[in-house]
Amino acid sequence: MLSEREIERYDRQIMIFGKEGQEKLKGAKVAVVGVGGLGSPVAYYLAAAGVGTLLLVDEQRPELSNLNRQILHWEEDVGERPKPESARWKLERFNSDIKIETFSGRLTEENVEEVLKGVDVVVDCLDNFETRYLLDDYVHRKKIPLVHGAVEGMHGQITTIVPGLTKSLKELFPKVKEKEEKFPIIGATAGVVGSIQAMEVIKLLTGIGEPLINKLLLIDLALNIFDVVELK
């Protein structure tokens, strides 16, 4: 049941998907894997929307050069607590009605089952395909959706993997050449792509709209291009 306070807090979105939709968000647990450029807006907007439980996963601590895009981490966090803890501190103060869980460590084949246990949707906010394939395998074992996002420079891509309905991430992107660690990025690019990922989660959980299932959204913010490629 939603409290009076929740009904007031979420009034503007209850206008869209009703109290029923809001209850669905409240009852859901969403994993945000990678709490960096994409993970920051994703976690921020999902917290704002009232997703009942957010699980934040990351192994790193914020660095000064992260702050151009990783907006959940501030100057005071640089070199201090791990990113999931840094983000938790803000999100708990932002929305005290939701629960924030954290895992500050590297996701591996050995621990992925335990770490992601009970999650309804996984959001891929990672910066490498090696760990993405780990998420891909996991969601296929559990038959839960995976919202994929990736960015570089002023470009990005988003698609939603649903086991049984779509190809796996590995089938779509079988051999992505991993670049050297440092890639160029403007924060707002991650903001756009992360916001769309958050919308994907909200659409999946509430049933409103059409998630990017079997569709790859390609975004080029330099040239103002939003293109949808059919994947089936």
């Binding site: 990678g34 960096g36 450029g37 994409l38 993970g39 891929d124 906010c125 990672l126 910066d127 490498n128 395909f129 993405r132 996002g149 990736a150 960015v151 570089e152 470009h155 990005g156 891509q157 992107f173 992505v176 991993e178 670049k179 890639f183 990025i185 991650a190 390609l218 293109d227 490629v229």
Partner: peptide, 10 residues
């Protein structure tokens, strides 16, 4: 035909 590179950053 459209060609595009997979991006991998986050």
């Amino acid at each position: 035909v459209a060609i595009f590179p997979p991006v991998s950053g986050g």
